[in-house]
């Protein structure tokens, strides 16, 4: 982003404020704060409504809006009880499945993508640009197009490889496959930004690729990796489609979202417990997001804006 701002030359003297301080001043004005508070309130209202709904009894939920709770505050834990114990399989099983699915599905693409990004950014080999563009272009392949062919490969693998269907492998693999193009692209852009002098200095000191990668790149890339990690975590945690298609046929592989999708019953006549279900499944991503959010914004900007 290099927009020319004539009144702020690069070597500005004292009386001329820098772009950063102008932005700082404008954003901290009372009006800006006021607007931010209004927006934050508006954006939070639906979540508050959902939260209140999750504690209201079935009849109230079905006959009146959540705002009427303030005039007739009936509170019940029935919805949460139903969510936690309402099916043959314990909710904890789905919870554990979600975790078992999510962690490798985040770690596998990150590991592969940081290595690939390093190679694309700092190693010279024939066909590098072509390969990078090919990886980049794969972002536009829609998941839905790949489903049946990919599942066919899992069920009936070529070259006499063992069959994979019916295991966590298929879900981990699929998530990794779908995540890699974006991961490589984001991390590559971030890595490209590291000044070349740093790498050269390390070379002069006798460092090879492995040492440069582990001692220089990995520490510098921590925010970007964390940002992508949150991205991928939220995507996998909230995913229903991949789990249904590739884990299909086996309740032992079903994550929380599968249970959530079926919470309201065969003909949707139990929809009052959906709000409680939403909150139960929201806890983990919320904790992850809040604890890592500063990386989230920083890494996001680093990767995407300076392409």
């Amino acid at each position: 982003m290099t927009t020319t701002t004539p009144e702020v030359p690069a070597t500005a003297t004292a009386p001329v404020p820098t772009a950063a301080s102008v932005a700082h001043q404008k954003l901290t004005s009372p009006w800006a704060s006021f607007a931010a508070i209004i927006i934050a309130t508006l954006w939070t209202i639906p979540t508050i409504g959902l939260f209140i709904s999750s504690f209201r009894p079935e009849e109230d939920v079905k006959t009146s809006g959540w705002w009427t709770w303030f005039s007739s505050p009936n509170v019940t834990l029935e919805n949460y009880h139903e969510v936690l114990t309402g099916s043959d399989t314990k909710l904890a099983t789905y919870f554990v499945n979600s975790i078992v699915i999510t962690i490798p599905s985040v770690l596998i693409p990150i590991t592969l993508a940081t290595l690939a990004a390093y190679a694309f950014a700092w190693m010279k080999f024939p066909g590098r640009d072509f390969l990078f563009v090919a990886v980049f272009a794969m972002q536009i392949v829609p998941i839905q197009v790949t489903m049946i062919p990919l599942l066919k490969l899992y069920v009936d693998p070529p070259f006499g490889l063992p069959q994979l269907a019916g295991k966590f492998w298929t879900i981990w693999l699929s998530h990794s496959i779908f995540a890699l193009p974006l991961a490589i692209y984001l991390l590559h852009n971030f890595m490209k930004e590291v000044p070349g002098e740093l790498i050269e200095a390390a070379r002069v000191d006798g460092a090879g690729h492995v040492r440069i990668f582990t001692k220089i790149m990995l520490p510098l890339m921590a925010p970007a990796i964390a940002a992508f990690g949150i991205f991928q975590f939220l995507w996998v945690w909230n995913d229903l489609l991949v789990a249904l298609v590739f884990g299909g046929g086996n309740l032992d592989l079903s994550p929380l979202t599968v249970r959530l999708a079926e919470l309201s019953g065969t003909r949707d006549n139990d929809w009052q417990i959906l709000s409680a279900g939403a909150f139960v499944s929201l806890i983990v991503p919320l904790v992850v997001f809040l604890s890592l959010q500063r990386y989230f914004v920083r890494g996001l900007l680093a990767g995407s804006v300076k392409g």
Binding site: M147, I148, L151, K152, A165, G248, G249
Partner: peptide, 9 residues
């Protein structure tokens, strides 16, 4: 999807 990909119930 499952029948077409050879993974039917």
């Amino acid at each position: 999807v499952r029948v077409k990909s050879g993974n039917p119930p």
